[in-house]
Nucleic acid binder design. Structure first.
Lengths: 251, 251
DNA sequence: AACAAGTGTTCGTATAGCGAACATTCGGAA
DNA sequence: TTCCGAATGTTCGCTATACGAACACTTGTT
């Protein structure tokens, strides 16, 4: 169904650096003819997903109801949110939950702390590469073996975010194996220097890893040692509490 | 462009109570023939927005990148988020930002507090009726007169959430007028009994109201009087700080 | 076991959507 | 200012796309 695919491509064409676009710009960026872009955009305007002043086009808040369809269908959020708020308040650090999508983790819930940690600001919907994030490694550890093999097969995707990032598939496989074994992951400066984060799996009733929960801090406040001592126990407790609410018996 | 419209309708078909649907269920709920639903769903699966086990269909995390396109194109979030975290930490209550869409406000950023306030759990993407929320009234007050008239014209949309909800268009117009005058809004129990909330406008460089910022609390902790005394000043300061970052000179 | 009611799939046809061709606007240069 | 060129935006006849009636198949009931 061509026009659906193209319409979705048009929506994803808009971003931080391109909040409003002309018809021709949309056509170029989405890879469609101007005539097609015109028809797609007019449909989106008609439906209330986009707005235009006659010259330029921009998205309207209604597109959020699309992402929200997924969020609410996940069900996880309303269970996790209160637990996450408690956790964030207890450790005074920001707390996030994410799910796997392709080679990335996608944030589905977040309780930011007062302190800023990262250079970029994380929000619900943000994507980060799985291989160099704590939540990514927990989620990779929960993948069926075949899916993990597939992930490691195309090594092109293992981007080097910092000079500490593990980009060797063999090395990553070993890390994922150990993550599965110990039931949590720690990443220190592999996504961004100075950023340290811990993650633990959230399991559903069938015992499958459906999401990851994490706490992030800065090395100026927290060393790897103190993170494991002070942050890990509350994190594991919270992750297990959420899992239990999802019907997972054994923690 | 029919198939785009229908495809988006299919996505919105999934929700909390229907996280996975059969082909026929989707067809029924989206108002299309089964054949059409089949083609749409297969396209969505192909593109990675949906998944299927051959029998039932569900959304994948990729649909969040659609909503995220809007969020990032807004630009507001990365400016507002740190200010909101500070504000939430200062007053120990949850803090949210929203924009107008049709007759609703849509949450675009949120810092939940430890305490639960509402019966339902609010997340980014949540919609609430504008007429009985503090943010809604602030946003209505920022609307061009013609748009406000339009809003008040169709009184059918002024749903009665509690017995305190103002549903009379004339009364609401007066409230909106006073909101515009004083530069903030308070709503006490009109959305949900026991819930009290304050909101202030966020303005862009051109002075237009682009979003609303709010603090919510519970009447068991906070009376209308103490809310105005303790919560309002920090809220106004935060809203003005964000507005200033957006290029708004006069606060 | 036979039926009924519902679900998923196929296929010829109509029409929705395609892009080449046509207007229109915009921004320099003289 | 006026002209020109290069871009943008719009139209329209043809074709492939997407439609739904008709066909299989599955499921649960008598």
């Amino acid at each position: 169904m061509r026009s659906l695919a193209r319409g979705l491509a048009v929506i994803e064409t808009f971003d931080r650096d391109h909040p409003s676009l002309s018809l021709a710009e949309v056509a170029r960026r989405a890879g469609v003819s101007r005539a097609t872009a015109r028809r797609l955009l007019h449909t989106l305007v008609e439906l209330g997903y986009a707005a235009t002043d006659g010259k330029r086009f921009s998205l309207r808040a209604k597109v959020m109801s699309l992402g929200y369809s997924y969020m609410s269908s996940l069900g996880l959020i309303e269970i996790a949110q209160p637990v996450m708020s408690d956790l964030a308040a207890e450790v005074h650090e920001s707390c996030s939950a994410s799910v796997m999508d392709g080679h990335d983790v996608v944030y589905v819930a977040r309780v930011p702390s007062k302190q800023r940690i990262m250079s970029i600001s994380l929000t619900v919907g943000t994507r980060l590469p799985a291989h160099c994030t704590s939540m990514g490694r927990v989620l990779l550890a929960g993948l069926p073996p075949a899916a993990l093999d597939g992930f490691l097969a195309d090594g092109a995707t293992l981007s080097r975010a910092t000079d500490r990032t593990v980009v060797d598939p063999g090395q990553l496989r070993e890390i994922v194996r150990r993550t599965a074994e110990q039931g949590w992951a720690m990443v220190d400066g592999e996504l961004e220097l100075g950023l340290i984060s811990l993650a633990a799996p959230i399991r559903d009733g069938a015992g499958r890893v459906v999401a990851a929960l994490n706490i992030s801090s800065h090395t100026s406040r927290t060393s790897a040692r103190t993170a494991e001592r002070d942050l890990l126990p509350p994190l594991l407790r919270a992750a297990q509490a959420i899992s239990r609410s999802l019907g997972h018996e054994r923690a």
